[in-house]
Amino acid sequence: MGGEVAGLPQKIDQAYNEARACAGVNAFTAAEMMCRKILMHIAVDKGAADGKSFAFYLSHLADQGYVTPPMRGWVDVIRSHGNIAVHEIPPSDKDRALGTLIFTEQLLRMVYLMEHLAAQYTAQP
């Protein structure tokens, strides 16, 4: 489940692969919880202090431009679905969890993949 994303830092790659593996074995609640956690990983990787609140991390991503205004709606889907998975008893369903994973994959592509490709294609011989 989910596609490969090149250029991810190790901890984020591990968390994303865990979310993908969870979805692959129908552990959809766990997949959504990991997608929520990935938001925190990205914020810390992009300069936020460790040990802050989840809301702080989301604000950091927006304030630093990693989540642009057009992206806020679908990043909020990751947040809200992850919150449901963490704080409510009913399990996540397949369609919602796969949507959450798709949005997480796209966020990772926008934050990391393009920077990774730019470094490859602009490297001096």
Rank of each mutant, 00 (worst) to 15 (best):
E115Q: 15
S80Q: 15
G24D: 08
N83T: 14
M71E: 14
Y16D: 03
A123H: 09
A21E: 00
P9L: 02
G51I: 04
V44R: 00
T68G: 05
A43I: 01
L101S: 08
L8Y: 08
I38E: 03
K52L: 10
P9F: 01
D50K: 05
Q14R: 07
L101H: 06
T122R: 09
F56L: 03
V77Y: 12
E115V: 12
G65I: 15
T104A: 13
Q106G: 06
A62T: 12
A43Q: 00
V75D: 02
A123W: 04
A43R: 00
R109N: 08
Q10A: 12
K94G: 00
V86H: 03
Y66I: 09
Q124D: 08
A43S: 03
L58Y: 13
A31W: 01
A49Y: 11
A23S: 03
P125Q: 08
H87T: 09
D45A: 07
M110N: 13
D63E: 15
A85G: 06
M114Q: 14
N26D: 03
A30Q: 03
M114E: 14
D93H: 07
C22G: 02
R36P: 02
G73W: 08
V75P: 01
A118Q: 11
V5W: 06
D76C: 07
M110E: 15
L8H: 11
P125S: 12
Y16C: 04
M40K: 04
T100E: 09
K37G: 14
G2A: 15
D13R: 11
F28W: 02
Q106W: 06
Q14A: 10
Q64E: 15
N83G: 08
H87N: 05
E32N: 15
R79W: 12
N17R: 07
N83P: 05
A6Q: 13
V44N: 00
T104I: 11
V111G: 01
A123K: 10
P69E: 14
F56E: 08
A49V: 11
A85L: 02
E32G: 12
D13L: 10
R96H: 06
L107D: 07
V77E: 07
M1V: 14
L113W: 13
H81P: 01
M1S: 13
Q14L: 08
P9V: 03
